[in-house]
Design a protein around this nucleic acid. Sequence first.
DNA 1: GACTAATACGAACGATCGTACTATTATTTT
DNA 2: AAAATAATAGTACGATCGTTCGTATTAGTC
Lengths: 193, 193
Amino acid sequence: MTKGKDTKETILISALSIVSQSGLEGLSIGKLAQTVGLSKSGLFAHFNSLENLQLAVLQKAVDIFIETVIVPALKQPRGEPRICAISKNLFEWDRKFSGGCPFFSISAELDDKPGVVRDFLVSTQKDFVSTIANMAQIAITEGHFRKDLNPQQFAYDFYAIVLCHHHFDRLLNDPLAQNYYLNAFKALIKNSH
Amino acid sequence: MTKGKDTKETILISALSIVSQSGLEGLSIGKLAQTVGLSKSGLFAHFNSLENLQLAVLQKAVDIFIETVIVPALKQPRGEPRICAISKNLFEWDRKFSGGCPFFSISAELDDKPGVVRDFLVSTQKDFVSTIANMAQIAITEGHFRKDLNPQQFAYDFYAIVLCHHHFDRLLNDPLAQNYYLNAFKALIKNSH
DNA sequence: GACTAATACGAACGATCGTACTATTATTTT
DNA sequence: AAAATAATAGTACGATCGTTCGTATTAGTC
């Protein structure tokens, strides 16, 4: 009863690493089985379909994301401090995966592929954007941000520089990626005051 | 001699559409051959390898990008007008492909896959970022932008909101994506004065 | 220790992948 | 019109894909 859960955990961690590097397309049952030292059919039996495996991997990623990025931020005071904490924690999140944020890795490949996996991803991404917008709204009521700031626009602007950091860092290998991001974040906060 | 060029053109246009929707992973020789009405081997003979096909598709994308986005912008006055033209033309570029900007579609899947295709993509993306930075530099010397503006940082900020627009539009299907982008662009220009 | 359920394995399936050959048409050049 | 070349088709290959099935091994329960 507990053995199954353990190997399932091992499988998902391995799978997440693959997804982070090669996206969902790079996640094949045969390859994954080889990586974790199981037979193809043995691994398959845990999920009964590739789609279920993909969903389980995404759910695992969400769990780790919440635990790494969201929960610690909520321990900060309401408003601006929480947003700054999110920004900081995102670097830690990124560092957890050899290929960078797994959500980013699969966003592009799913954006024209309807199905439950895409639906799940979209749902989690919308949750994140909403979380940022909510935090911005709180920062307004707390008096940190100016009253005429649009929280949704803030979430967009924040998401933008996060996405771009990943792009400059992982694809372009620009050594200044983090500098650009930090400057942009500082400017975003400043313009929100 | 000319017949080959024609069918090659047809192939590349079809291939670009596929790549825009499903990325490079979605571009298979068999499927593409079926789409354009050729036999697998007949199509293969045009490129002699999948890698060459991918490179040709990317080169075609670059050609169209320059013709759609860059060249018209260069007809505008130096400095800020050119940057605004780029911003406007990018929407036209996006509209040319059913799946959105093909470069975006393949960025994530290539960022951990070394090879000539990745090298080519990185090279073109760096070219684009440099082009934006150069235009920002010109806008400074023309007196449109403030003297202490960092052109590279401007290019990053600009790239960020473009990326994010694609994300909000294609993945999240947010009807306000364009609004967010236009607001962000307006703010970026304003803060550069 | 016996029984049962969970877990893993091995082999095979149809399908598709990129690629390599050879043969057969079209097209261009002489 | 004949010869030469380019373009396409046909077939087959090894590999890998997700999935199914039957069987063997392991683990937990009584």
